[in-house]
Nucleic acid binder design. Structure first.
Lengths: 149, 149
DNA sequence: CGCAATTTAATTGTGCACAACTGATTGGTG
DNA sequence: CACCAATCAGTTGTGCACAATTAAATTGCG
C-alpha cells in the first residue's frame, strides 16, 4: 500500500526524470546545430505556423517572457529569426524565421524513428502515453493536442 | 498520418510541459518551507533511506555533482542536512538529515490526494502513466520502480 | 476626451541542469 | 613499492524556468 501513498511522488519524479532523459536524447542531434531543446521547440512552432508573436509562442510552449526574451535574443544572434515590433500595436513583437532558420528544418531532419526506438515503446503505448500526459496537465482540458506540441 | 510523424515531438513536448506543470503544483506547498522541488526530492530520499552519499543521491535522482553540490550546500545553509566526509574513503561525502530536516516531513505532510485530484486522472490511469514513463526511460529496463522515485 | 486598468515585452535575481574541467583520493597492476 | 586509471566531489560557464518588477502601449469606462 505504500505504493499508493507514494503514487503522486512517483508520477512526478517519473515525469521529471523522463522529461530530462528525453531532452538528453535530442541533445546530440541539436548540439551540432548550436541549438538547445527549447530553442528547437520555438523553431518547430515557426516552421509549422510561420511568423508568430512572442505572446503566442508563450501560450503554445507555456513559457513566459522571462524565458522567451533571452532565448529569442540568442536565436536572433545566431541568425535563425528576426524580431519585428508590430506597427499597429507596438506592444507585440513578431518573430520571423530567416532563411537559415528554415534551412535548419531539413538540416536536422526527422528524428522521429530514432527517438521512438530509443524509448522502446510501441506506437500504441506512445499514443496512450501522449493522451495521459495531455490529460494530466489542465484538469478537464478536452481540446485535442495541438501542433507542433 | 502526420500525427504519427510528429509523435515523438508531441510526446517529448508533453513530457516537458507536464513535468513543469506538475512541479508547479508542488511549488505552493514547498515554497512556504523555503524548498524547491529538487530540494524536496533530496529530502524524500533522506527521509526514506536515512544518511546517503552524494554519489547515491546522484544515482537515485539522476543528477550529477554539478547540480547536487550547490543544491546540498543550500540545504545545509538552511540547516536541513549536514555534510560529513567519510573517514575510510575521503572521496565520498555522507549527507545526514538534521532534526529540522526530519521535521519538514511532517510539516509538509502528504501531498498525494491533492495532487492526484489536480491531475484529474484515476488511480488506474496514474498507475498506467507511471509504468509507461518508467519504461520510456532506459530501454529494456525491467527493474521495478524504486523509492522514493 | 481623460485616466485607470490591462496587456505586452523586457529586466533582474535565484535556482536548477549539464558539459567540461580540476583536484584529491583510491584501487589495481606490473 | 610505483604508477596509472578510475572514482568522487567541487567549480566554472551557459542556458533555461520562473517570480517579481518595470515601462511602454493599448483598452475601456466614466
Amino acid at each position: 500500500m505504500r505504493e499508493s501513498t507514494a503514487l503522486d511522488q512517483m508520477i512526478c519524479f517519473q515525469l521529471y526524470a523522463a522529461s530530462r532523459a528525453m531532452t538528453a536524447l535530442y541533445r546530440p542531434h541539436l548540439e551540432p546545430h548550436g541549438l538547445t531543446y527549447p530553442q528547437y521547440l520555438v523553431l518547430r512552432v515557426l516552421w509549422h505556423d510561420g511568423p508568430t508573436t512572442i505572446r503566442d509562442l508563450g501560450r503554445t510552449l507555456k513559457l513566459d517572457s522571462g524565458t522567451l526574451s533571452p532565448l529569442l535574443k540568442r536565436l536572433e544572434t545566431q541568425g535563425h529569426i528576426t524580431r519585428v515590433r508590430a506597427t499597429h500595436d507596438e506592444r507585440t513583437v513578431w518573430i520571423h524565421p530567416t532563411d537559415t532558420g528554415h534551412a535548419l528544418q531539413t538540416a536536422i531532419g526527422d528524428l522521429t524513428q530514432e527517438l521512438v526506438c530509443a524509448t522502446g515503446l510501441t506506437v500504441d503505448e506512445l499514443t496512450q502515453l501522449h493522451t495521459l500526459l495531455h490529460r494530466a496537465r489542465g484538469t478537464g482540458n478536452t481540446t485535442p493536442p495541438e501542433e507542433p506540441v
